[in-house]
């Protein structure tokens, strides 16, 4: 799908979520779903397989998100998958999240960690990243076991890498 169409879908989803009055919650749920989608081959294959009828793909989405996410989030993901744009879901959601953050004068900050952060750690990390970048950030924490330990934070084009994974890669390069 071309960029204009992805932008169009993101804008539509953004407007729907804002109209529903649950933009913060929806964009956070969509962000997490996008990361899960990226990390799961089975989910990605199921939602992008044209041999599976659209209704069946939408049923998969509703089974996955039903009861765990807001109805708005479930319906938005179901709509994108049903229209055959499942492969563009992460790009659409990233634009939506950036648009939502921008509407609040925030910069999206993605933090990848091996283990979940406590609310206190998230607050302090948010403040630390704001201090480091000079921007207020909309923190999105992604639990990624491949990080092994520490955090990889991305704010715009800036990457702050304090992960064990990167240190191991550097060690491997030296070897």
């Amino acid at each position: 799908m071309n960029d204009a169409r992805i932008e169009g879908y993101a804008k539509a989803l953004f407007e729907i979520a804002r109209a529903e009055g649950s933009l913060d919650e929806v964009e956070d749920e969509l962000f997490r779903f996008a990361r899960s989608y990226e990390s799961s081959d089975a989910l990605r294959n199921a939602l992008t397989d044209d041999m599976i009828p659209a209704a069946k793909r939408q049923a998969i989405v509703e089974d996955l998100l039903g009861g765990k996410a807001t109805p708005t989030t479930t319906q938005l993901v179901s709509m994108v998958v049903g229209s055959g744009r499942g492969s563009d879901l992460p790009a659409i959601i990233d634009i939506l999240v950036a648009r939502a953050s921008s509407s609040k004068n925030l910069e999206v900050a993605e933090a990848r960690t091996a283990v979940p952060l406590t609310p206190d750690q998230e607050d302090r990390l948010r403040a630390a990243l704001a201090n480091a970048t000079g921007k207020q950030v909309n923190l999105k924490v992604v639990v990624d076991p491949s990080v092994l330990g520490g955090i990889i934070a991305t704010v715009g084009d800036t990457v702050i890498d304090g992960s064990v994974r990167t240190r191991l890669d550097q060690l491997k390069a030296r070897l």
């Binding site: 283990v115 403040a127 702050i160």
Partner: peptide, 26 residues
């Protein structure tokens, strides 16, 4: 890496990021 080590690494990162004060680098 046990839980304690994870927490130490996370805290160390937060402290490091907090001390950058607008000088974040890649």
């Amino acid at each position: 890496i046990d839980d304690a080590t994870h927490q130490q690494l996370i805290e160390a990162f937060i402290q490091k990021a907090g001390s950058m004060a607008g000088s974040a680098s890649v």
